[in-house]
């Protein structure tokens, strides 16, 4: 099947984002190994050229002086200048499910009168698989005929690509869009300094399941068993003020890959697991046997952490025999 697939690429500080390369694998799975890639930016010619070389895909660079700073308004206008004329042939426009992808996709779908399906993890014939209810269930969604706008979950497809036989073609479309209703005021780094998470061999993380702030002492006690350990947290725990945001792990926090990660009372939302799933060994303690965290864990312990951690500590300090 020859489907016309368009990928919206992302780049950050002069490099193409891994999610963009994953979209190529997604496109291959849909039957089109060489989709068209659209990049937006200001004077990023060599980046676009290089992408066409590396992937063998046709790259369209939408170039505009204001496109160096992202805004939904600018990017949507710029994309529609390129996308509108060819709705007929396009089967799918795919973004990564990032802060740019989920921001833009619905409005773009609306403008193209296309359905919008977000955080797609897999393809099944002409339907798309996505998690619902925090990953406890999956839905298979079938769009109406015609183009569909998708956001694809980062990490669901592979960023690896065999080098192509020949380089793809790169073309430049100059646009003169300028901010009107949404004026970008710049970007700044996270306020939260690293909390030793990256140097740690072992990270013990707390989720909302610890119940209250006072129970953090259990998590610290568990962490103290390991020499080079640090404390992590889910976003929920930081939002509740139980731990500082610098401990937060996940898409909007830190990405870590320690030797051992112990998740205590964390449900396993994709935004959390994307920040820790590359840990060498993952242990999860959760009272719910169906918690999504267990699907990324090597060892699953279905227990109430409030009673289990004390038992574990006891067994460690006073081993039998």
């Amino acid at each position: 099947m020859n489907r016309n697939i368009i990928i919206i690429g992302e780049h950050h500080e002069g490099t193409i984002s891994p999610g963009t390369l994953e979209l190529l694998d997604f496109s291959r799975a849909l039957g089109s190994p060489f989709p068209e890639i659209i990049l937006l930016g200001s004077d990023i010619f060599s980046l676009a050229e290089n992408l066409a070389e590396r992937t063998g895909c046709a790259v369209t660079l939408i170039n505009g002086e204001h496109l160096n700073l992202y805004s939904a308004e600018l990017y949507q206008k710029a994309l529609l200048e390129v996308l509108r004329p060819r709705d007929e042939r396009t089967l799918c426009i795919a973004f990564s499910h990032t802060s740019l992808g989920f921001d833009l996709a619905p409005a773009l779908a609306h403008a193209l009168q296309a359905p919008c399906i977000s955080s797609v993890e897999d393809i099944e014939e002409s339907s798309f698989v996505r998690s619902i209810f925090g990953g406890k269930l999956q839905s298979v969604v079938t769009p109406q005929n015609g183009p569909v706008v998708l956001t694809v979950l980062p990490g669901a497809f592979s960023p690896d690509r065999t080098p192509p036989e020949k380089s793809g073609h790169m073309r430049i479309v100059d646009v003169s869009v300028a901010p009107v209703s949404m004026i970008p005021q710049g970007e700044r780094a996270s306020e939260y300094r690293d909390s030793g998470l990256h140097d740690a061999d072992v990270i013990v993380s707390a989720g909302r399941g610890i119940g209250k702030k006072e129970n953090l002492s259990l998590i610290s006690a568990l962490a103290s068993l390991f020499p080079r350990s640090a404390l992590g947290a889910s976003r929920a725990v930081c939002d509740l003020g139980w731990m500082e945001y610098r401990h937060q792990i996940g898409t909007t926090g830190q990405t870590v890959s320690p030797k051992l990660y112990i998740a205590c009372g964390i449900s396993g939302a994709i935004q959390h697991t994307s920040g820790m799933k590359n840990a060498q060994t993952i242990i999860a303690i959760n009272s719910d046997p169906n918690a999504a965290i267990f699907s990324v864990s090597h060892y699953a312990i279905v227990e109430d952490l409030l009673s289990f951690i004390p038992v574990l500590m006891e067994e460690y300090t006073h081993p039998p025999g």
């Binding site: 619902i132 269930l137 839905s139 298979v140 079938t142 769009p143 060892y299």
Partner: peptide, 18 residues
Amino acid sequence: RQKIAAIRYPDAGKKGTF
């Protein structure tokens, strides 16, 4: 513009050791 074709539990095969 879209409909649900199926609802199911995620693949248990990917799960680690309980």
